Computed example of a mutant assay.
Amino acid sequence: MIRKIGNEWWTAPTESDENGRTVIVTGRRGVEAAMESGKYRIRVEITWRYQGDSTGMPDKPTSMLMEAVQEALTKVFDRDPVAILTGVYTGDDRRDWVFYVTSTHIFERKINEALAPFDLLPITIYTENDPDWAEYREMREATELTATDE
């Protein structure tokens, strides 16, 4: 059994690799026990591309819908922690949610449960084996020093 996963977050601005636009990164603290457990070996990235404003940020209605989606995902995975949301990237005309999961099959069932109340969403899902949590470690190293706590 894994100790309780933390629910403290940091937020920091960074720049897009493609064009230097600002991307707001929100990362989760307190995931070390899950990381060390070896159970969460697969990284899943959910990407939502949107038509941003001149700075690449979403308009208010899109932002509100993305927040509702995130709340639905969080609610499902808090009840059944087969996936841990570790990072959220917003900017450069896209939002990315990064999860570490125990099983893509169970994750698929749970994400369908979470998103059932919503109309068709413009999301894509990418998975990759990442047993060392390389993406999380890179995000944390690149942003946590300039972060503000939420």
Rank of each mutant, 00 (worst) to 15 (best):
Y126F: 12
V31C: 02
E108H: 12
A72Y: 08
Q51T: 02
N129Q: 13
I106M: 13
T47N: 07
S63Y: 04
Y40P: 01
A114T: 07
Q51P: 01
K4D: 09
E71N: 13
Y89V: 00
A147P: 01
K39W: 08
Q51Y: 05
D130W: 06
E67Q: 12
T90Y: 00
I24E: 06
P81G: 08
R140T: 03
I84M: 04
E8R: 15
E135P: 01
I106S: 11
N112D: 05
N112E: 08
T90K: 08
K75W: 06
G6Q: 03
R94M: 03
E8S: 11
P117L: 12
E18S: 13
W133G: 03
A34Y: 01
E15S: 13
N19Q: 12
E8G: 03
T104R: 10
E138N: 09
P13C: 13
I84W: 02
T62A: 07
L115I: 05
P58S: 11
V76A: 14
Y136C: 02
A116P: 00
E32M: 09
E18T: 10
R29Y: 13
Y89F: 15
E15R: 15
F118P: 01
G20P: 01
A134R: 14
E113H: 13
R79H: 09
T22G: 08
D80M: 11
G30L: 05
T86R: 08
S63P: 00
L65C: 05
F99Q: 05
K39H: 11
S63N: 10
R43F: 01
G87H: 11
D53S: 09
A12Q: 07
D80L: 10
E138Q: 12
W10K: 14
T11A: 14
D80E: 14
E8C: 05
E32N: 08
R94P: 01
Y136I: 02
F118N: 04
N7R: 15
I84L: 07
I42H: 05
L85R: 08
V31T: 03
K39V: 00
S103E: 01
T146P: 02
R95S: 04
N129I: 00
E36G: 07
T47S: 10
T124G: 09
T148P: 00
Q51C: 03
R3N: 11
